[in-house]
Design a protein around this nucleic acid. Structure first.
Lengths: 358, 358
DNA sequence: TCGTGGTATCGAATCGATTCGACGATACGT
DNA sequence: ACGTATCGTCGAATCGATTCGATACCACGA
């Protein structure tokens, strides 16, 4: 038999060099064979593959290939909260679904960056090889994780997050969408309207929002959805929830609806369908008829399968498209391109939860 | 200034060698400084860190470190279905939450391996550097992805999946749990009992299960949950759903309950809380009183926040613990250990959906 | 027969860090 | 003052593949 001209692994699993030697070719050729390059003869490729099979070699080590290629095939999705909470949000799930759809078709994997403290640990970001990161459900402004990633040279895509230089933004027209629903309510004669907001900051605060609190809001989309209401009604009372969850919607609903009828709002604009669902539940508890006594509108167009036959009036956003756009932008960044920001349209969907003011 | 004794990167981002040169130390020392080794003086570490800051070097490249260390810091979670469906399952989410809790504390990331075809693509598995993989919500027997992973030498943990040699199994006592709930129903006088099963295979089949279909079941837990009922009642009719979703529970409920009263079961044992929730909805539609006319039991102990005040009788499994156990086992495998299989206990939780037979 | 063009394969450099054993210097004990 | 620990730093090998430019080979035409 031929002597070994290439360094072989001392022990353990075979490497490409082992396979090459066994097939009687150079490592370079073996590599070409595995990558399916047309520069290698079918016969040679066959020999290499046979040798690999004989040695139990399952293909080039992804880590080594990553180093050489300069990319790992992993893209991170930053979901600020711990998984359990983040994934109670049907919008988050659908967004990630859209992302994986695109990434999967490129053979790239999606890695979840979560943190019970609200941020993924810097340690994690430092240790894990990421080709790019997508800020999915946590577009907090002034995010330290975003800074860390950029310092490492990891390209970043932000979904409905802060406007940062050099970061691709995938956005929807929150403000116009909410304004449309507000316009609808106004046309229906509503004048006592309040809005139930998603958290302005992740500090567990819950309750009416004053000017100073509002000025310190961390999330651009939350601000825009407030402004949309104000575009039609001018200043309205804002009730902030501690998280985007049904239970929070219930709490908010009870707080706002369990008051004397003359002070009770005739319509509530929730910043998400999940919150709206909670409000509906609170209204039912209090014996209020929707939409007879109260109109309720949401945002997202999520399919809340547990809502039963109620069709929520809402602003439908193309969540899955948003996810695909984010992933596509991320892939472009990895390829060295400079994808443009994306602004996606939203549209009003009128359901059975809004009617003329009582 | 000193001449460069170490090879520096020709252009682009600085490397550890660049930093080392600037700090006037060797690359080895710089590496030690970054890893926080006690073998390096505080003063030296300071010099290195200062040099790094000056150069805009954010720390060692994770890919290169991965190659040298032989691990990537990424663990894959195989969720068979596409994300959108997999994450409608509250149990899956809670399981993943438990997993990330442990992984996060080790600075390791969780990568989702999904596939709308039902399996993650082999291509993906080949390209992405994985230290280990956890089969989370798809313990299908004879899974090609499992084979691929093992061929690549990726350690595998299976949650409630097939029994495979050399693969760590995290299991719960499905059969005993279901038997307990069946015993309860039996003691309550129920004799016409049927069971609503999760998919036996992922082929979209829905309806009564005959012997041949049952023999071709792909999932061990599904089989065990059937056997648990049979342990008490002997052979019972089995209705298979096409997926573990509320809508499927509704469909099953309608099929089984919309029949003449004398043929209608007095109790239904669902293989999951999600399916049970659907059954409850179907029963309500048909005007059946639960638990007056019909007793319903589930499995999982998931918190279905949309169920309202109904407390489902169910078999509670420690889902989050299961996730933590899986992640812990995965970490052990990465470290070269041979973690033992784990069998977790379950317990019956009696709610308001079961009562004496009518 | 020799030159030329095209092609399949090969060599060697390279990606960027980690780690182990070696080495020099300092401190200490006698 | 000299031998010996101790401690901090350094050299060099190594992880395993990819890729570009070079080379060897073959066929073909003049």
């Amino acid at each position: 038999m031929g002597h070994n001209r290439y360094r072989l692994t001392v022990s353990g699993r075979p490497t490409l060099a082992t396979v090459a030697t066994r097939a009687g070719v150079s490592p370079s050729t073996a590599s070409l064979a595995f990558s399916g390059s047309p520069r290698v003869t079918a016969a040679t490729r066959e020999r290499v593959l046979t040798a690999a099979a004989a040695l139990g070699y399952a293909g080039p080590d992804p880590i080594a290939a990553s180093l050489r290629r300069g990319r790992s095939g992993v893209i991170g999705a930053v979901v600020g909260e711990r998984l359990l909470y983040a994934f109670r949000d049907p919008v988050a799930i659908q967004l990630l679904d859209g992302i994986t759809e695109v990434l999967g078709s490129h053979g790239v994997g999606l890695l979840l960056l979560a943190g019970d403290t609200g941020r993924p640990s810097t340690e994690q970001i430092a240790r894990i090889p990421l080709d790019a990161a997508i800020f999915a459900t946590c577009g907090q402004e002034d995010d330290p994780a975003l800074e860390t990633l950029r310092a490492r040279g990891v390209p970043v895509v932000v979904v409905e997050g802060p406007v940062v230089d050099g970061v691709t933004l995938i956005d929807i027209d929150d403000r116009r969408g909410v304004a449309e629903v507000a316009r609808l309510l106004h046309d229906l004669g509503h004048r006592r309207v309040e809005t139930v907001a998603m958290p302005l900051r992740l500090d567990g605060t819950r309750g009416p929002v004053d000017a100073s609190r509002r000025a310190r809001a961390h999330y651009r989309d939350v601000r825009h959805r407030i402004e949309g209401v104000e575009d039609v009604f001018g200043p309205v009372p804002i009730f902030e929830t501690a998280s985007n969850a049904v239970a929070e919607g219930i709490t908010a609903g009870r707080a706002l609806l369990d008051v004397p009828a003359h002070r009770r709002p005739t319509a509530l604009v929730a910043q998400s369908d999940v919150l709206a669902a909670g409000i509906l539940q609170a209204a039912a508890e209090l014996g209020l008829d929707v939409p007879g006594d109260l109109s309720v509108a949401g945002f997202d167009g999520a399919d809340l399968h547990w809502l039963g036959h109620v069709r929520l009036t809402t602003v439908v956003q193309p969540t899955e498209v948003k996810g695909r756009a984010a992933a596509t932008a991320a892939m472009a960044l990895v390829a060295g391109d400079h994808p443009p920001d994306v602004m996606l349209p939203v549209h009003l969907r009128i359901g059975t939860t809004t009617a003329v003011a009582p």
